[in-house]
Structure formats: C-alpha cells, structure tokens
C-alpha cells in the first residue's frame, strides 16, 4: 500500500465523517416527533356515538372479545356505551369492516400505554374522544 493511497483513504474517511456530522440522524426524537403513518394505519379506535345504532356487529365479529356494549348503562340509555379492552385487542380491523354505519374507525395513534391494566379498558367517554391529535402533537421538531 503506497503513501498516496493511504492518504486517499484518510480523506475518504474524513469526507464521510463530515457528511455524517451535518446530516439529520436516521432515528426520531421519539416522544416529540414521529414518522408519518399511512392512511390505513390500524391504530387505536374512535367511536362516533351519533352514528352508532348498537347493532353489536363489532362485538360479534371480534375474534378476541375485546369489545363490550353495555345495554344497561343508564347514562347512555339511548346510545351505545361501548367499552374497548386494549389489553385484548389485536388490531385486526374486523370491527371497523363490520360496522355498516361508519361509527367505528381506526386512528393513527399506535402508541398506547398506561400504568394500570384498568386504564387500558377504554370506556364510553374515552373511546369517543382522542386524548391528543396525532398530527399536531407530532409536528414539533427538535433537530
């Protein structure tokens, strides 16, 4: 190996190092920014109670018995009180397909975590609202 080829190697390495310094990293600064999710992302569900007729097709089709509709709930007597158990859900999308009244949708929120198991059972109030807007929340860039 000659002197010039070694020098050339050193310069090639230096060029690579400088390029890496000024490049954006491949990884995301996760809790504050996230990658873009496709349209069809099967994340947590949202329930539109105005459209729901409590026909229970989603309950019937769910392979892991994650959905429960409480017909005896007096507060939501006329509408459906839907309980969604995210400790059981496998995000297969069958419930969204089964819904003929456009009352159940997937959202792009895929990172669900809670301190207790009970918090992962989303009640009628939680399943109808998004606790955070996925896109606005993710818009902040740190680097």
């Amino acid at each position: 190996m000659g002197f010039f080829s070694t020098l050339g190697d050193i310069f090639r390495i230096l060029r690579h190092v400088f390029r890496q310094i000024f490049k954006r990293p491949f990884t995301y600064f996760y809790p504050f920014e996230d990658r873009e999710y496709p349209e069809r992302t099967r994340g947590r569900h949202i329930h539109v109670r105005e459209n729901c007729t409590a026909c229970k097709q989603c309950v019937r089709v769910c392979p892991v018995v994650a959905i429960r509709i409480d017909v005896m709930d007096q507060k939501y007597n006329k509408d459906a009180a839907l309980y969604f158990d995210y400790t059981r859900c496998i995000f297969c999308g069958l419930c969204v397909q089964a819904c003929r009244f456009n009352a159940l949708y997937h959202t792009k929120v895929v990172d669900i975590s809670a301190e207790n198991r009970e918090d992962l059972i989303y009640g009628p109030d939680e399943i109808t609202t998004l606790d955070r807007e996925p896109l606005e929340w993710r818009g902040r860039r740190f680097r």
């Binding site: 496709p38 069809r40 992302t41 099967r42 496998i90 995000f91 999308g93 069958l94 397909q97 997937h106």
Partner: peptide, 26 residues
C-alpha cells in the same frame, strides 16, 4: 405492507372471497 394493509407484520390481508385492501399508487 404497512401502506397496503395498515400493519407491518399482522397483515390480515386474505379473506374468504378475495382480499381486504386494494392496491394504491403509493
């Protein structure tokens, strides 16, 4: 796969009678 089905691994794509999700340009 995620663009097509919405999930990376558990795709749930084939169903008796056809497939669930159509091809898109993206």
């Amino acid at each position: 796969f995620e663009e097509l089905t919405g999930s990376r691994h558990a795709v749930s794509y084939n169903t008796p009678g056809g497939v669930k999700y159509d091809f898109t340009d993206k």
